[in-house]
């Protein structure tokens, strides 16, 4: 794999290599954050100094289907010992699927000093780098966060309806079977009860994992990504794009790719996604 800075990304500074992370383990301005689907992974071994942010417990509200509010985010940020100036480097399982999700939530609160470790947990592990079970704790900070920004990188169902009416671009990052309506859930996952199968009208199908090199979990080069998203899907960097999946996690990965690796001007993640749209009364679908 080529070096990150040689891959032609619009914002290469949003990605760091495993080697870079290894060189910054003791950097007090860096906080490593592991975010996984599997809650057993972090305690079974993580990069020294890393803290865990769990997508269910730490990023979502327990009662309302929504993300943390400002107080909740401040509490999280203070607990993991970061300030607004701390560079947070996210990594995790599933080719950084949950890491990009966490980064997306942090950016909702204006924490833009955030990066992804290319290749994620698996690449670090496969390189034989150190893992520890020692849980790091950091002094609490007085992190003061702004109110959550739900306009810049996030879109709700009414916004999606307006987006469709304006015939703007949508990317469905689920599996082709979910996109076509042949199945209501991703392969190897249970049915979550969406009433209808199909996709949001006008959406192009680009499964999220196409952005990844399967061999090591790193992101494909900008040229390879352009072939997929511009060449095959017909998107343009000037498009106003909405990405969606099932609950907004896989689409946060595509949001990251379009916004930071390809430099699209406006990309928003519809986290209501198919678990909302597939059950909504009065909205259209396509099969």
């Amino acid at each position: 794999m080529t070096r990150i800075e040689d891959r032609g990304y619009a914002h290469p500074e949003l990605l760091v290599s495993t080697g870079w992370v290894a060189e910054h383990l003791d950097d007090p301005g860096i906080r490593l954050v592991e975010s996984n689907e599997d809650p057993l992974l972090y305690p079974s071994g993580h990069i020294p100094g890393a803290v865990e942010v769990d997508w269910t417990r730490d990023l979502n509200q327990a009662v309302v289907r929504d993300y943390l509010d400002r107080d909740g985010f401040q509490a999280l940020a203070r607990r993991i010992g970061i300030t607004p100036q701390t560079t947070v480097v996210f990594y995790g399982d599933k080719n950084n699927w949950w890491a990009t999700y966490a980064l997306w939530v942090f950016r909702l609160f204006g924490h833009t000093a955030a990066k992804i470790m290319d290749g994620g947990r698996l690449k670090w592990s496969n390189e034989g780098r150190e893992l520890t079970r020692e849980v790091s704790a950091y002094p609490s900070t007085g992190y003061a966060a702004p109110e959550r920004d739900d306009a810049t990188d996030r879109v709700f169902r009414d916004g999606v309806l307006a987006h469709i009416a304006a015939k703007r671009a949508l990317v469905d990052v689920r599996s082709p079977e979910e996109y076509s309506g042949a199945r209501l859930h991703m392969p190897d996952y249970p049915n979550e009860g969406a009433l209808r199968g199909g996709h949001i009208p006008g959406a192009k199908s680009v499964p999220w994992a196409r952005a990844i090199n399967p061999a090591d979990g790193t992101f494909k080069t900008a040229e390879e990504l352009r072939r997929i998203y511009l060449g095959e899907a017909g998107l343009a960097p000037t498009d106003d794009v909405v990405a969606y999946c099932r609950i907004g996690e896989r689409s946060s990965h595509t949001w990251f790719v379009l916004k930071f690796l390809l430099g699209f001007e406006r990309v928003r993640n519809y986290d209501g996604s198919w678990t909302e749209w597939g059950n909504l009364v009065g909205v259209p679908i396509e099969k």
């Binding site: 689907e37 599997d38 809650p39 269910t56 417990r57 249970p190």
Partner: peptide, 10 residues
């Protein structure tokens, strides 16, 4: 119960 759906299915 907090284990993810995918893990539980496997």
């Amino acid at each position: 119960r907090e284990l993810s759906m995918g893990k539980n299915m496997g």
